[in-house]
Design a binder for these strands. Structure first.
Length: 265
DNA sequence: AATATTGTTCAGCA
DNA sequence: GTGCTGAACAATAT
């Protein structure tokens, strides 16, 4: 479930393993995720160059090439990265392989092939093209910004949190966790949230995302009162012990506790 | 064997 | 313009 925290962990992983090594070749097992260029063109753009650094915006990871271009990686719903040397460590569903001069390789893993890989001149090019809102963990994304973005907007808070066009990074799973920690019913309309409650949502958003990153985005390691690791089982609410309910919001399954998340704002 | 997932995009509609 | 719904995309686990 690569949402912001997952992508941030992947960024740290790539930083720790794959920077400043000469790329010998790029092996493309499926072209399906390539956007705007084919396998040969991708190889030509990357060969004999090195990854120089990374940036993240929302759920997108940007990898700077030492020649100036940027590789864009989106992980869809099932994407992952793995850095390894020996064939016995080779992961399944490695759709694109970046082979380095030191014998190691970085695999772009994507079992369900709904991802995106491309090359742009600047991250801003992609951000503008996709019309992405500001990254919710950016330093200048403060409560003022959050409130202004939501001001005058219609619809339900869960939908707006997941709207990449107004703010980027939050998906289905973390929107549920944020609203659970904030004690806000997912279907509450934005216009019905008073300033205090909105502040609560904002604080929980920053908190949940930071905590998730600290725990390497692995739900099993999250604090005991987090909902994420229980959202699929028939587990009771980790805060009050009551039953967890499932609802449809914006065409997706949302999980919440009716006792802890009251319907008024 | 049908169904639920996960994110993005787009068409159609209120 | 805004937002919702449903479909499409892929492939797997249950």
């Amino acid at each position: 479930m690569p949402e912001l925290p997952d992508v941030q962990v992947l960024k740290q992983y790539l930083d720790a393993t794959s920077l400043h090594q000469q790329i010998e070749t790029v092996e493309v097992h499926s072209q399906q995720m390539l956007e705007g260029l084919d396998a040969q063109q991708l190889r030509d753009r990357l060969q004999d160059r090195a990854f120089a650094g990374t940036r993240r915006h929302g759920k997108y990871l940007f990898v700077e090439l030492d020649g100036g271009d940027w590789l864009v990686l989106h992980f869809g719903m099932t994407g992952d990265l793995k850095y390894y040397k020996n064939v016995d460590k080779e992961p399944e569903y490695d759709q694109i392989l970046f082979r380095f001069a030191n014998g190691y390789q970085l695999a772009y893993i994507m079992p369900r092939k709904l991802g995106e890989v491309r090359v742009v001149d600047q991250p801003e090019t992609l951000i503008e093209e996709k019309e992405l809102g500001p990254d919710v963990l950016a330093d200048d994304f403060d409560f003022q910004t959050f409130r202004q973005i939501l001001e005058g907007r219609r619809g339900m808070i869960k939908s707006r949190l997941m709207d990449q066009h107004i703010m980027a990074g939050i998906g289905n799973v973390y929107s549920d966790e944020i609203l659970f920690q904030a004690g806000v019913y997912p279907r509450t309309h934005v216009k019905d949230l008073d300033t205090d409650t909105l502040g609560q949502v904002f604080d929980c958003m920053k908190e949940v995302l930071h905590v998730a990153i600290e725990h390497r985005a692995e739900p099993e390691e999250f604090p005991d009162d987090y909902l994420t690791q229980y959202r699929h089982s028939d587990h009771d609410c980790p805060k009050c012990g009551g039953p967890i309910e499932r609802i449809e919001v914006a065409g997706r399954a949302g999980y919440f506790c009716p006792r802890c998340q009251k319907k008024e704002g």
